[in-house]
Amino acid sequence: MVTDFGSILLFFITGVIFLVVMLGIARLIRPNRPNPEKLSTYESGEEPEGNANVQFNIRFYIVALIFLLFDVELVFLFPWATVFGQESLIQETNGRWGVFALLEMFLFVGILALGLAYAWRKGHLDWVRPQAKVSDIQSKVPMDLYGKVNKKYQ
């Protein structure tokens, strides 16, 4: 007699064995003819240039996180909308459930709107780079050296 956890373990072991057997068979029957063309890095059919460790602008990540936030919001709104429309639930509670659910969702969307307003106010959604303010502090370092450093990191 096998318990529930035992059947899960057997299923897992069977899956791992199946995977190993299939990869072993594939290794035996596939051709192995490496050449310089196959071993080169593929980059749209052109030879790669420069360093592969390119740093992306942080704005891409911020916009992706905001998109993810509102995508998850829709995941929560859809089941709410399907349950909220059930007439039987509204009749059982004499309409109190409907008002509570509606207020609860307005609160949820309001909190997310505050988060969006905060990100907007902080400038996380602006794609135009702000102008650098030139300092009037006198320094012993010549300004052209600062210009070279700034040009290097732009």
Rank of each mutant, 00 (worst) to 15 (best):
V83W: 12
P79K: 06
A117I: 06
G95I: 11
L69M: 07
F60A: 14
I25W: 10
V83F: 14
T93S: 10
I13R: 15
Y61F: 15
L9H: 04
L112M: 12
V2Y: 09
R59H: 10
R96L: 15
N150K: 02
D4V: 12
D71E: 13
F60S: 08
S40R: 04
D71Y: 12
N32Q: 15
F108R: 13
L39N: 10
V109E: 02
A26Y: 15
M22H: 14
G15E: 11
R59L: 06
I66T: 02
L23T: 11
N57F: 03
K148T: 01
D136G: 15
F67D: 05
P31A: 02
F12Y: 07
E87P: 09
L77I: 07
L77M: 03
G123R: 13
K133L: 02
L74C: 03
M143S: 14
K133S: 04
S44D: 12
P34F: 06
A26D: 15
Q91V: 04
F18G: 06
I58T: 04
E73Q: 07
I111S: 01
V141E: 00
T41C: 13
V141D: 01
E47Y: 13
F60E: 12
F60M: 09
L89H: 09
K151L: 00
I8D: 13
L28V: 08
P36S: 15
V63D: 08
S40D: 07
P34D: 03
F12T: 15
E47R: 11
H124M: 06
T93H: 03
G85S: 15
K152A: 04
E104V: 04
N53E: 05
I90C: 07
A81V: 13
P142G: 05
L112N: 10
V75G: 02
F100N: 02
F56I: 03
M1R: 06
I66Q: 00
Q55L: 01
G15P: 00
Y61N: 11
G15D: 12
V63F: 10
F100A: 04
T82M: 14
G6W: 01
L89M: 12
L112P: 00
L102T: 10
I29Y: 10
G115L: 15
